[in-house]
Design a binder for these strands. Sequence first.
DNA 1: CACCTATATTTTACAGCGTAAACTTATATC
DNA 2: GATATAAGTTTACGCTGTAAAATATAGGTG
Lengths: 199, 199
Amino acid sequence: MPRALSPAQVEDFRERLCAAAERLFAEHGPEAVTMRQLAAELGVSPMTPYRYFKDKDDILAAVRASGFERFARAMEAAFHGEADPVKRSEAVGRAYARFALEQSDAYRLMFDLSQPNEADYPELVAASARARDMLIGQAKGMVDAGQIEGDPVLIAHMLWAALHGGLVLQLAGKLGPTVDPSALRRGTFQAILKGLAKG
Amino acid sequence: MPRALSPAQVEDFRERLCAAAERLFAEHGPEAVTMRQLAAELGVSPMTPYRYFKDKDDILAAVRASGFERFARAMEAAFHGEADPVKRSEAVGRAYARFALEQSDAYRLMFDLSQPNEADYPELVAASARARDMLIGQAKGMVDAGQIEGDPVLIAHMLWAALHGGLVLQLAGKLGPTVDPSALRRGTFQAILKGLAKG
DNA sequence: CACCTATATTTTACAGCGTAAACTTATATC
DNA sequence: GATATAAGTTTACGCTGTAAAATATAGGTG
């Protein structure tokens, strides 16, 4: 079918390849997955993906960006499902943790420290920023509601860092056998909010 | 010089190779560093390292273990430099953050999510546990001093997760331009301790 | 209809990878 | 000094990502 691939066809191929890549990257790690495997998965020759992606790194960036998009969507859904600022913040926090644990492969890829080529991929930057803005808006809601006091941006990052840190230690298997990850998250959240309480 | 390599010679070669590997891994990422480069760095043939390490993964594990060892030493030094439990906890926290930032390449390698082969390398497990025990002991000190209340193990992990999370977000460049990383760490620490304060 | 042209796709090819196996070299023991 | 043995090198193989060349297929034009 040469002569002009429609944008829809291009997008379709990109999505199918990303889906396969996410599954394989998650299962074996990005380094262990070869372009030949990826191509075989879609039933095309090894060089075909290069018409749709610059190179293997570009595929990884696309997979990570799609992860950030689903991540942002999950938190936005939780946000819109609750009206009360405190309940909202709890719901967003739960959505965050649920995403990280249920789609831990995606989460791992998204926050992998050894992949900081981020700046080269605008889509990735945008999707990542969307997730961060979500968290900041949510902290602002709690401050505006008079629940806590302080700079909403700083507070958002405090909660984010604590949540992310706990999840990352859990995923890395560094939590020690007696620590319940869920209790850790709840305890940290409560302690921080109590520490920031107004008055 | 065949016939029997003394343990000291073996250890010497291992250490020299680890030093070179840490530098190169940090600079280019472990995947981008080849065995041939590593060998050339020591002036030996590409296969010589295989007499001292099982394979490339084994070298990475050794580098990470040595990072954890220096990490534990840095915190232990901070611990012994202060007597008061609260000052101690602050000093250990500062030592933690200083290590993560000054030796960020090592820290990155140590906590890289995509390297969970940990269990296969007892040395690595031991060195990692030593760092964790340090943090737990320090939280216990604060609880015993009556400063805060709760399960010391849980509290240690709360502080650890918050600290690690903030550092990891900082190293991944996800903090946003208006957030001062140091203020973030201090704020989180204070909020958690205030939230856990006795009475 | 046939033909040409533009592009999607495949084929081929290459340098470089980790490392197994064969080979070389040099000493410690007899 | 001969020999056994371990350290170190060379060679070789099946991979990898991907550049370049070759092929196949569609639409526009006569």
